[in-house]
């Protein structure tokens, strides 16, 4: 069982949360600009890393707020929790964000990446 620290409510069991999947997936602002292959990349392809992952969680049975988490998918260790509209601060989080294939994906190439605070 994961023990997740909600930034607003503190530590709770993962039963209280809803998993939001991979974080920082850029939504195409104009899907018509993309061909089927590029849209499929955005819609279906997953990073699914073995190791560090940046992901979203919703405290659905608590304060009902979203936040981002840096977790290791092998050890389940959570090393960083940060607000939904920001980038990770830790070294491994920043590294993972920069090296993720989505930074070079068609979606992020064709449109202006979202500006985080």
């Amino acid at each position: 069982m994961l023990y997740i620290e909600c930034p607003w409510c503190g530590f709770r069991d993962d039963e209280e949360f809803h998993y939001g999947g991979e974080a920082h997936i850029q939504r195409p602002t104009d899907p018509n600009e993309l061909n089927d292959e590029e849209f499929s990349e955005y819609l279906y392809l997953k990073s699914n890393p073995k190791g560090v992952i940046l992901e979203r969680w919703l405290h659905s049975r608590g304060c009902r707020r979203w936040f981002n988490v840096l977790r290791n998918t092998v050890t389940n260790e959570i090393t960083e929790i940060y607000p939904i509209d920001t980038l990770p601060n830790s070294k491994e989080g920043t590294e993972y964000y920069g090296q993720n294939w989505r930074r070079k994906s068609s979606v992020e190439k064709t449109i202006k990446p979202r500006e985080y605070k």
């Binding site: 993962d14 039963e15 092998v74």
Partner: peptide
């Protein structure tokens, strides 16, 4: 389980 993991174990709930 709802979350991605390569650990061969899941949550008790």
């Amino acid at each position: 389980d709802s979350y991605n993991s390569y650990a061969q174990r899941g949550s008790l709930n």
